[in-house]
Computed example of a mutant assay.
Amino acid sequence: MSSILLLAIISACGNNQQKKDGKLNARPAEAAPVATETKPGVQHILFFGTSLTAGYGLDPEQAYPAIIQKKIESLNLPYKVINGGLSGETSAAGKSRINWLLKQPVGIFVLELGANDGLRGLSVPETSANLQAVIDKVKAKYPKVKLVMAGMQMPPNMGAKYTSDFKAVFSKLAQKNDMVYVPFLLEGVGGVARLNQEDGIHPTAEGQKILAENVWARLKTLL
């Protein structure tokens, strides 16, 4: 994939809120998750991330977490998905926002954060520390939680060392925290025109299906 296309795709994580009357408005799939009644024995799977998780430009049921919910239902598994994706989220912002989402029980936690840090060229050690802080908060609140890390990559034009160091953050944290690891969330979608919306940035409904498969291949081992 070309570095320009990959950079554009990554920038999608920060461009998904639009202003109206001076306020930021989230699209339907990006609305803040609300705790709802869950049947006894059913565990929550919280997907916590950026617009890639929120499913920008699509109906809520077309975002990859919702697609995974359908897979779960087809297999009659006792899990309920919560989409905690939010446009423009950085690891620092996520470190603060996670407290609110942890008010509802979480059995499995899927972390997809960091792309906006890379896009801004933020310090890799800082990003790593913020992601670890998120993980620590989740584990402190729910010690028995199962964890999944979704990896992200930066394009070569960010510099060889930065690109390498950034990519390594996700695998290192996954290993350190005994997390199931998805090496690259956008595998098979990044840079493929037909799998992205007209802006050439955000995955289409078909692209989101591939994201769902990328995550499901690892997530299903925990169910």
Rank of each mutant, 00 (worst) to 15 (best):
E187A: 14
L75T: 09
L113V: 14
N76P: 03
N196P: 02
E89D: 14
K167D: 07
G57M: 12
G14I: 08
P155R: 04
Q153C: 02
M152A: 02
W100D: 08
K139F: 09
N15C: 01
R97P: 04
L147P: 05
L5T: 07
L185S: 02
S74N: 15
V189C: 06
K144S: 13
A168H: 01
V124Y: 12
F170E: 01
G107Q: 05
P33A: 07
F109G: 15
A193N: 08
M158I: 00
V138I: 13
S171R: 04
W216I: 03
E206F: 13
S87Y: 15
P105N: 08
G118T: 00
D59M: 05
D117T: 09
A35M: 04
K80P: 05
L173A: 03
I10G: 09
G55T: 11
F184N: 04
K95L: 15
I108N: 03
N76Y: 11
V81D: 10
A35D: 10
K39G: 09
M158L: 03
N157F: 14
E73F: 10
Q62H: 15
G88I: 14
S87K: 06
E37N: 09
N116I: 08
A12L: 02
K23N: 15
A66V: 05
K220S: 12
P125Q: 06
I210P: 00
I4D: 15
V124E: 08
A115V: 15
L211W: 01
M1S: 08
K176F: 05
N116G: 09
P33G: 04
S11G: 02
K167E: 10
A66F: 07
E126V: 06
P78L: 12
V192R: 04
L173M: 01
P155A: 02
N15A: 01
L222F: 04
L58D: 15
K70H: 11
G14A: 14
P40A: 15
